[in-house]
Design a protein around this nucleic acid. Structure first.
Lengths: 349, 349
DNA sequence: CTGAAAGCGCTTACAG
DNA sequence: CTGAAAGCGCTTACAG
């Protein structure tokens, strides 16, 4: 590959002049240099430029699982903004593992200008380490305990959980179960809290055997739904706290030939491309996905502009939205559980 | 950030010695150096190492759409192998655009050690340019006309298309339609060819108005299915050539309240995570996904080993597999179309 | 085993 | 406007 020296020699100037020309400065021998560049098919070495400038022009993106449609959409959103800049994305998957995340982050620090991260747990310490290294960091989807000093694009998970709970209550359910995500994760914890809040506010209790915690993966949704259905008194409604667990739960219900929503109502968190096409079409709490990724990337790129570099952390909290489809309905035989009474809001379909 | 000079100064040795120690060579002042490294939290600059070695240790991955579950799975497969190496992945989305692909590739050439690409069209010239630049290139999912000199991990698309056609024929269908993918793409062309081959071999003709070509996106599947259903004599069965278009077709059929498979059978290409949960569960031609990505990455990494660097191109062609679910069935009122006769293989459900 | 020196391919004050 | 020189942070023959 040709270097700037080769081009300079050919054009009869010094490397410095070629460099200046390439960066848009006025030079006398512009045509000669351009010709040399063309003939030799010269492209500056990004590595040499990086060493010189201290900038890599790459953004590290660390997500738990790229095959989760939510994260795929988020990454697409990020890509849609970098595509108009001269930044590129370096992608890493952590499989929800903190160790893996530590390893990834440690080596990214020296290779990227900034990082967008969906941390594996709220307790992660590595992000502090990243900040100390002077690498701008933005959280997406998930937060850190005490992470207020970092930029973040999140969703109002508590409200989302509440929406799910209130929806089931409004249909008249009182025997309600939750399949929550990892509790050391912002969305896992908050969605459950919001959900329980809604029930509590309505005087509906959620017994421990209905209050299950999974790990955001399909398999755990499957297993927990199975265990729920094998209870002596199974719930009449289930809230599942992410797309993958909802799919797992749906599979379990199908395997058991459960009638949805006849025997049991199911509400999920995060819509799916196939949501309306499923058996039955899924009622879900939806939220922006591609937009979340785009916003996170914009937040990060701002940090590279001197005027914003030292701004206070920006925390963007987006709203969730209930999408009612056919997987939820009033319970078939409304029971008057002791103390629960008529908790519904009177809305019927 | 500490540099190797800082560490050397602190340990009382020369930078060269620190460098040797770091690379595992025996040195006298090992402990002193290790201590300095720890205290200063020193990590070598990847950029400086790259400039020196000429290797970036990053792999460029270029796909048309990361939110297509097939490509998400492929990327995950790649990640599962790089994770055990010291290579990382730089990801780019092309949105099926050749121009975008050209741009991405052009700048990747100077930044990565190798590239895995699912080319936007079979006519792409850029890959030749990549090869001329001395950057190893592996195709995944899609091939290039005259691309035999490149490593590739593909699938037997022709056979897959044939399987789809034979399945519909075996059910007794004779009024059959195809929604194909871009015809300047390997999978788009081959799947259609295989499909048509199967019909032709059985003496079944596919009229032009049933032989539709889309662009692998959901919207085109939707529109084309719509147009198929509005025909005076709509088909009794549709083959849709990828996951997204199948979803689109399914949506169209739902919107028209079409009974599947009663009025119309639908068979897709590429399974979905939600495949069994859809209304109705989808019959599809399936193929390995994660494995395809992993294999492509292994092929590429081999090129970095001297012993294999100059081997002939390795072309891995994987097999497809029919998964029969509930979206296909015999046509409701088998017509004896002139010349078609009983083309079924006699199998009935 | 170790250090001084050169070099990887750029960019940018510093003089002119 | 332009060139020589120094420097970005490493690594590696070359002597010793």
């Amino acid at each position: 590959m040709a270097t700037i020296h080769d081009v300079a020699a050919r054009a009869g100037v010094s490397p410095a002049t070629v460099s200046r020309f390439l960066r848009g400065q006025r030079v006398r021998s512009a045509e000669a240099i351009q010709a040399a560049v063309d003939e030799m098919d010269y492209w500056p070495s990004a590595t040499a430029q990086s060493l010189q400038s201290g900038r890599t022009h790459t953004i590290g993106v660390v997500v738990p699982d790229i095959t989760n449609p939510y994260f795929a959409a988020v990454v697409k959103g990020m890509e849609s903004v970098t595509r108009h800049t001269d930044y590129r994305i370096q992608l890493a998957n952590t499989d929800e593992s903190s160790e893996r995340e530590d390893a990834v982050l440690a080596e990214m620090i020296r290779r990227v200008d900034g990082i967008i991260l969906a941390p594996a747990t709220e307790q992660d310490q590595t992000p502090m380490y990243v900040r100390d290294a002077g690498v701008p960091l933005v959280f997406v989807d998930r937060d850190l305990l005490g992470g207020e000093h970092f930029d973040a694009v999140l969703v109002n998970n508590t409200k989302g959980g509440r929406q799910a709970g209130e929806h089931l209550l409004s249909l008249g359910h009182t025997r309600i179960a939750a399949i929550s995500g990892s509790q050391d994760t912002t969305p896992g914890r908050c969605r459950r809290e919001g959900f329980v809040q809604a029930l509590t506010a309505a005087g509906v209790e959620i017994p421990p055997e209905h209050d299950l915690v999974g790990d955001f993966r399909e398999e755990s949704g499957y297993q927990l739904a199975l265990s729920l259905l094998s209870l002596p008194e199974p719930p009449t409604a289930i809230f599942s706290a992410n797309n993958l667990m909802t799919l797992g739960a749906l599979k379990a219900l199908h395997d058991l030939r459960t009638d949805i929503p006849g025997e049991i109502s199911l509400i999920g968190f995060d819509d799916l491309d196939t949501g309306p096409l499923l058996r039955p079409p899924l009622t879900v709490v939806d939220r922006p996905m591609v937009e979340q990724g785009a916003l996170a990337m914009r937040l990060l790129l701002r940090r590279f502009e001197d005027q914003y570099a030292n701004d206070d952390a920006r925390r963007i909290i987006l709203d969730t939205k209930l999408i009612e489809r056919a997987s939820t309905a009033p319970p078939r035989k409304p029971r008057t559980a002791a103390g629960a009474g008529r908790t519904g809001r009177g809305r019927q379909r």
